[in-house]
Design a protein around this nucleic acid. Structure first.
Lengths: 206, 206
DNA sequence: AGATTATAATACCAATCAGTATCTTATTAT
DNA sequence: ATAATAAGATACTGATTGGTATTATAATCT
């Protein structure tokens, strides 16, 4: 986006690796919690001088916003992509469960959801970060809601529940599962809880 | 417990207010998150000198263990007491929902569950704190499990689900509700989610 | 009264924090 | 070649952190 090394500019050329910095920041915010990582630490690990960092991001608020965008595009998108596979509603529930419980590696499970961590401490962050949290939450919600609406129109979901509520219900249960796994609960326990909680939305076998 | 001002002891008498310190620590850990509160800050707010604090608690680990015990006895106990009212299973579910959604004041809702916050950052704390987290989680689980077992023996709960699973399921849903409210979700949304999630455990109206 | 004991209070330590002033270096424009 | 520009890098600031050495104080014991 902003990589204009091609265009000859005046002044000393940039050598700092913004992608590396964002990735390192995301990883550290993710595993340690966004409120428990200092800018000093991030700059040191990314081998970027602090004045360089402040030139690029202005401060913590700008960095956090960038990290949230990176997390959305690389991680949250994986969940949203499942909703666009055009599988049946019940099959999609299975895929969502499998993604959360089986498909993520050990480290991802231990770290939980970075968006959830940001959300939990929302008030502690700057304006841009708070806005970005809200935007991503809304984006995620809208994709789930659209999926429910489609399932309804295809006749795959016919319970008398609003799309708004069903979307929130599923997101809530998935969020819980992710945080439960991060808390060290066993795969099978989470799987059973999720299975029962989502069973009320499925076509009854009887 | 340790208030032995009655017994004449040698040396300068203690004047520090341990209960006040623990209460202030609990409140600050609760509202700001246990990883975001410094000992300096706690000592300053409680008007206790740091050497005095270290003499009493040894350090952060000892304080956090004491705070967790205080939280368990004052807050978590309120939930557990509901399970001992000997109401029917379905009525007890109603009471649990009402407690989480209606009965807690605004500040409690915004702060969420202190135990959950400690649990989320469990690895960051000292040995005593980690052990106390585990103990309280286990105590809470056992009370829920006993309640389920009694409901089964009274014939109020007859689904083919283990008491272990049902206890975990209910705790999970309540935990989610508390954290959802802390994240600013609306009472009604949380109430609807909880109602649907717990409906699978209730006697069917049909 | 004087020794003993334990607590209170102040002041300090080195480490780390967010943020910046200053200086050096590498490029382009003239 | 020299000026202008912009980025890199070092080193600093004042504040805060966890933790402690030191000193003053208030009680009991002999």
């Amino acid at each position: 986006m902003n990589n204009q090394k091609i265009v000859n500019k005046k002044g000393r050329p940039k050598t700092l690796d913004l992608e590396k910095l964002k990735y390192i920041a995301m990883y550290n915010y993710w595993s340690n919690g966004p409120t428990n990582v200092s800018l000093n630490e991030i700059c040191y690990k990314a081998k970027i001088s602090k004045p360089g960092f402040y030139r690029e991001f202005g401060g913590e608020d700008g960095l956090m916003k960038s990290v949230l965008l990176l997390y959305k595009n690389s991680l949250i998108q994986q969940i949203l992509d499942i909703l666009k596979l055009e599988k049946t509603f019940d099959e999609t529930l299975d895929l969502l469960m499998a993604y959360v419980i089986e498909n993520r590696d050990k480290e991802q499970k231990e770290n939980g959801c970075l968006l959830a961590k940001f959300r939990q401490s929302r008030k502690k962050f700057g304006k841009k970060t708070q806005e970005q949290i809200d935007i991503i939450l809304e984006e995620r919600y809208l994709v789930f809601e659209l999926w429910i609406k489609k399932a309804k129109s295809k006749g795959e979901f016919s319970l008398p529940l609003t799309s708004n509520f069903v979307a929130n219900y599923i997101i809530s249960q998935l969020d819980y599962a992710v945080s439960g796994l991060a808390n060290g609960e066993k795969n099978n326990n989470i799987k059973n809880v999720l299975t029962l909680a989502l069973s009320v939305l499925r076509k009854k076998i009887s």
